[in-house]
């Protein structure tokens, strides 16, 4: 086994999932200005929905991902409507606290409904491939390809569609967007729906190689925040690059230094970048 190459592949796989989660988080932050701490909990819901559709519903895995994404889009929109919209004109801190409160609500509902047990997907794509001393399962290849496809689709959606342009305009200048006739309240709702569907896709993609359980969102939320601060809050390229960077640093750093401190490496990178460029890699000063 080639240690370096294998860790690069491991890092890219985890990085692609990190990127997806961070992308959702960063576009939500870019539009609403709210750090949605409950993003990881929505990722967990995405994993559960697809798990249940596949196991209890007998639905095809790809269809299950699409249904989970659609369901979470709706849930995201509902959350915007009933949690964040009433707080638009309140002090910023209120939305922060509401987002933290959401974690408890979602995680505990999951705990009550599905119990604390770990669930495992039935085997889906566990064929193994060996090349250049590297081992990879088909599912891991699928994760990376799907994540990249989703990232490209998101970029096209933002650049090529009217809704996408409205989102981009609102992110650039909320007042300006409103003046040119964009319904920014509706943009808020679409954005939370869109961002949440990306979290759902990430959860549904990684579910089969991990376990599905109510607390699974906590770890990715923290990492997604590291990524978007690293990449620059609200920056799409920052979230993509940051996600892959973090995945690679964790696995390669773990291989040559010690796996015990892979989180020290991740946060060390964050501190270093912020010391040199306080707005993050792609962040703009306000």
């Amino acid at each position: 086994m080639d240690l370096f190459l294998q860790q690069v592949i491991n890092g890219i796989m985890v990085g692609s999932v990190y990127s997806l989660v961070a992308l959702g988080l960063t576009i939500i932050y870019g539009i609403l200005g709210v750090p949605n701490f409950a993003h990881g909990s929505l990722y967990m819901l995405g994993a559960y929905f697809s798990f249940l559709l596949v196991t209890a519903g007998g639905v095809n895995y790809w269809l299950a991902i699409l249904i989970s994404m659609a369901a979470l889009t709706v849930i995201g929109m509902v959350i915007e409507r009933i949690v964040f919209r009433p707080l638009v004109n309140a002090p910023h801190l209120n939305s922060f606290i509401a987002a933290i409160g959401l974690i408890y609500v979602i995680d505990n509902v999951a705990l009550i409904v599905w119990g604390p047990d770990f669930k495992r997907f039935p085997p889906l794509y566990d064929q193994l491939y060996h090349f250049l001393g590297v081992t990879i399962t088909l599912h891991r290849i699928i994760i990376v390809i799907t994540a990249v496809v989703l990232i490209v689709l998101l970029e096209l959606f933002i650049k090529k569609t009217t809704i996408g342009s409205a989102i981009e305009a609102t992110a650039q200048d909320r007042v300006g967007a409103r003046l040119s006739g964009i319904n920014v309240t509706r943009v808020d709702m679409w954005t939370l729906g869109l961002g949440t569907s990306l979290a759902a896709a990430a959860g549904a993609l990684i579910g089969p190689i991990l376990l599905v359980y109510p607390a699974m969102g906590g770890a990715v939320t923290l990492k997604a925040f590291v990524i978007i601060i690293l990449g620059g809050m609200g920056s799409i390229p920052g979230a993509i690059l940051g996600g892959f960077l973090l995945g690679l640093i964790e696995s390669i750093g773990g291989a040559y230094l010690t796996t015990n401190y892979h989180e020290v490496l991740a946060f060390g990178l964050l501190v270093t970048v912020l010391a040199i460029k306080p707005t993050g890699l792609f962040g703009k000063a306000h």
């Binding site: 240690l3 294998q6 860790q7 491991n10 985890v14 991990l210 770890a219 291989a255 796996t259 892979h262």
Partner: peptide
């Protein structure tokens, strides 16, 4: 176990 997302990096090493 609370923060790990994948065991491959640990196992590879």
């Amino acid at each position: 176990f609370k923060s790990v997302t994948d065991f491959y990096p640990y196992l590879t090493k």
